[in-house]
């Protein structure tokens, strides 16, 4: 058993050595791999907007704590619209974007197959809005699937970020989800304009009498489970 494992590791190292020996041309080397990405919504009453998935190079980053959100991320986090987020390059190598087809309710899950060039540089980013908030999103940033073997599954629990582009007023008319039916994206940035971890929602039970959110909308991290299975 151990001998077999040792052999496999040796073979893997040999492959890496060959790839790095190719120098610059190794950037585009690798195998075309298919992954199934399954997201389960683990919140109590926060439907999640259609999943946005980016397959990208490790030199690309869709967001960073302390930085300004891109317009695509702002649109995703305030209104659940991922169309611009999926095509933004942010100055780095262009990612491949994939979108889910529908909102994922609490207790529901969604699956997307994505295809990418599997090599040491490959990363996967996942994002989706918590629709009963002003600008919270579930995120998994640059998940490393480069060493994932065929038929193996990587489990990732998603954190909850605040896009920092809209004040967390929780007031009627500002939240697009079913708790309110209010506005989604608005180009005005009236919050810190820095991405941070989300502080949670006050709701009416937190003595925010004007909030459209109630106790059912509260949450703690993680908000979702992502299971990435490599198919080939």
């Amino acid at each position: 058993m151990n001998t077999y494992r040792y052999l496999r590791i040796t073979l893997l190292l040999a492959t890496v050595a060959i790839v790095s020996a190719c120098g610059h041309s190794s950037k585009s080397s690798g195998n075309i791999a298919t992954y199934t990405v399954k997201l389960s919504n683990l919140s109590h009453n926060q439907p999640l907007s259609p999943l946005a998935l980016l397959v990208h190079h490790r030199n690309f980053s869709a967001w960073q704590i302390g930085s300004e959100a891109s317009e695509g991320l702002e649109r995703l986090a305030e209104g659940g619209d991922n169309s611009m987020f999926l095509v933004e390059t942010r100055g780095g190598p262009k990612p491949e974007g994939f979108s889910g087809t529908s909102v994922i309710g609490p207790g529901e899950h969604s699956e997307i197959d994505v295809v990418g060039l599997s090599n040491q540089q490959m990363r996967l980013t996942v994002a989706s809005m918590l629709v009963n908030t002003n600008d919270a999103f579930a995120g998994g940033n640059a998940l490393d699937v480069s060493t994932l073997e065929v038929d193996k599954t990587l489990h990732a629990y998603l954190s909850i970020y605040d896009a920092g582009t809209e004040a967390n007023s929780e007031l009627a008319g500002t939240i697009p989800g079913p708790a309110d039916g209010g506005e989604g994206y608005n180009s005005e940035r009236n919050d810190t304009n820095k991405i941070a971890m989300h502080p949670g929602v006050a709701t009416t039970v937190g003595d925010h009498g004007d909030s459209v959110l109630d106790q059912s909308h509260r949450f703690d991290a993680p908000i979702a489970l992502v299971e990435i299975t490599r198919l080939n």
Partner: peptide, 20 residues
């Protein structure tokens, strides 16, 4: 009583106690 309903009938992350 805080609530008499449950929105997510699967195992999920607990949203915390409300209390008063």
């Amino acid at each position: 009583g805080v609530t008499s309903s449950e929105q997510n009938h699967t195992v999920h992350i607990h949203r915390g106690n409300v209390g008063d």
